[in-house]
Computed example of a mutant assay.
Amino acid sequence: MRILFISRTYPPIIGGIEKQNYDIAKSLSEIADVRILANTKRGIILPFFAIYALFYALSHLKNFDVILLGDGALSILAYFLKLFTTKPVACIVHGLDITYSNQVYQNLWIRKFIKKQDKLIAVGNETIRQGVSRGIPPEKFVFVPNGVFVKENLPHYTKEDLQKTLGIKIEGPLLLSLGRMVRRKGVAWFIENVMRNLADNVFYIIAGDGPEKQNIIDKINKLNLNGRVFCLGNVDDQIKEMLFCTADLFIQSNIKVAGDMEGFGLVVLEAASYGLPVIASNIEGLPDAIVDGKNGILVDEKNADAYKEKIQHLLQDKCMAKEFGRIAREFVSNNFSWEIIARKYYALLQELIKKKT
Rank of each mutant, 00 (worst) to 15 (best):
P11L: 14
P12V: 15
I13S: 13
I13G: 12
I14Y: 14
G15Q: 13
A25C: 14
L37E: 06
N39G: 04
G43D: 07
G43I: 09
I51E: 06
Y52T: 10
Y52C: 09
A53V: 01
A53E: 03
Y56I: 10
L58G: 08
L58V: 03
S59F: 14
K62V: 02
K62H: 04
K62W: 04
V66D: 00
A78G: 11
L81I: 02
L83E: 13
F84A: 14
T85H: 12
A90W: 02
H94I: 03
T99P: 02
N107T: 14
I110W: 00
I110V: 06
F113V: 02
F113H: 04
L120H: 07
I121N: 00
G131F: 00
K140A: 10
V142Y: 08
P145A: 06
E152W: 01
T158P: 01
K164M: 11
L166C: 04
G167C: 07
L174R: 04
L175T: 05
R180G: 13
R183S: 11
V187A: 07
V187W: 04
A188L: 07
E192I: 02
V202K: 04
D209H: 13
K213S: 03
G227W: 05
C231W: 03
L232D: 11
G233M: 13
I239T: 13
I239A: 06
L243C: 01
D248E: 10
K256M: 05
V257W: 05
F264T: 00
F264W: 01
F264P: 01
G265V: 00
V267F: 09
V268L: 08
E270V: 07
S273M: 11
P287N: 05
L298N: 01
K302W: 03
K302I: 05
N303Y: 03
A306E: 06
Y307K: 02
K308F: 03
M320A: 15
K322R: 14
R326W: 08
I327L: 12
R329I: 01
F331C: 02
S337F: 06
E339V: 03
I341R: 00
Y346I: 03
A347P: 11
L348C: 09
L349K: 01
